[in-house]
Design a binder for these strands. Structure first.
Lengths: 240, 240
DNA sequence: GTGCAGTGTTAATAGGTGTTACAATCAAAT
DNA sequence: ATTTGATTGTAACACCTATTAACACTGCAC
């Protein structure tokens, strides 16, 4: 029951942040803290977490935009916290894929309760997390990708280095195996903030990935191009 | 267990109030809450408390005036909390008879520590509940760092020497474990006077630290780089 | 003084990101 | 089948950030 207790708190008011951290630590969570959208995305890229507590009012980025970017790269449980009373925000947040929604001020006990609920819901009978693809190792062709340690191993178990953008793109494709992802969706998966690079960037990263992954990069079998639509991961996968 | 664990929290931000309450309750205190100077004085008149946590920024009354009024009727321990940075406030508050003074945001652990200190001091000279200064020894991976003696011990308890800058940087990171610290914040931690060295200095000290701490300095696991943001201490820690 | 440890700067290097230009390819119309 | 315009692939490049070695400077101990 207790393996997945890493909680990431995204909150810009430092005092609230520290109080939440101290409180959750006492409840036995391992807490990580970020105070901006930029940090948040960097943190999610560097280390998987079991649950995200997201304050919609981060200074540098609209919370709902962040929510979309998060959902583009993982299905981790997210609880949205906001000072806003608006009903629209609530609906939008839930539409964007938030799992729960609380308006500040709220009772810390209730908060911990909902966190506990969400975590227990996302844990299967075997104690493995259902939600987090990041707790999985996936094999395809000669490769095995570990979404947890963010590493890619070749057939001899040697690690092949991927850049952040390359890994995120591959992870997004693997998570949506056999589904077509548009360039816009893939952009969400690789971009850190809202400074969206052009969609051609996706082509470039795809090319770099293919050069590393494909036996014959000219005739790709793993990442297929869907002309006019996007790309599709189309190798058989085996989840470990 | 001592009977005097009733704490009164005077704080107008409702969320902060609830977080503080939940936190102190977990620490075994019986908590009462007020959110205005008016309520505060009424509460003090009707029910004795063992300690007051007073936010200077209450809406209806200047905190320093309140402080004087409180002292006019009791000698109960008071810790003043404020968002203001001003040195004058601090001096005035202490002059007015506050027992301690903390600037928000502050570490909740420190807050509880000071509350404990103050309460045990006010118990009397029997020495029963004298507060033991919490040891500041923290273990991570094969290392243990003692923030009091400023020493770092390896797995065999041999001391590994760190320069002042190295130690301060490491201490700052450890104290903010799992939080991202910007180069600017880390600069504050290592520079003694106000002559700020350039932020590249941080990279240099980080490199020197990694060479001493990390198993594989090229693939650091203890101090992680957050590109474009700063650094983060990300090894599990255990406080002794 | 001389030597030494530590501090901080600088510059070379490495690696990643994103743009652009042009080549290659595709798909639809003729 | 050929043409044509749109789309995709990729090399080359500019730019950015982080890493690290080298070095000069400072202050301190002997």
């Amino acid at each position: 029951m207790t393996a997945n207790r890493r909680i990431l708190i995204a909150e810009d008011d430092e005092f609230v942040q520290q109080l939440l951290a101290a409180y959750f630590q006492q409840e036995g969570f391992q807490v990580s803290l970020v105070s901006s959208g930029h940090e948040l995305m960097a943190m999610l890229d560097s280390e998987p977490q079991d649950l995200l507590l997201l304050d919609l009012g981060l200074p540098d980025e609209d919370g709902l935009v962040l929510m979309r970017q998060i959902r583009a790269r993982s299905s981790m449980p997210v609880i949205v916290l906001t000072a806003r009373q608006g009903r629209e925000d609530k609906l939008t947040a839930l539409e964007m894929g938030a799992d729960d929604y609380l308006i500040k001020p709220c009772d810390p006990k209730e908060l911990v309760l909902r966190v506990g609920n969400l975590l227990s819901r996302s844990v299967g009978a075997d104690g493995q997390s259902v939600h987090l693809p990041s707790s999985r190792i996936i094999r395809f062709e000669d490769w095995s990708i570990n979404l947890d340690s963010r590493s890619l191993l070749d057939v001899d178990n040697n690690e092949v280095h991927l850049s952040r953008a390359e890994f995120n793109l591959l992870a997004a494709l693997v998570n949506a195996a056999n589904r077509v992802l548009s360039r816009a969706q893939l952009l969400d998966a690789i971009s850190m903030d809202d400074s969206s690079p052009s969609e051609r960037m996706i082509d470039v990263v795809i090319a770099r990935l293919r050069r590393k992954l494909e036996r014959d990069p000219k005739n790709p079998t793993i990442i297929k191009t869907m002309v006019g639509i996007g790309y599709r991961f189309s190798a058989p996968t085996k989840v470990e």
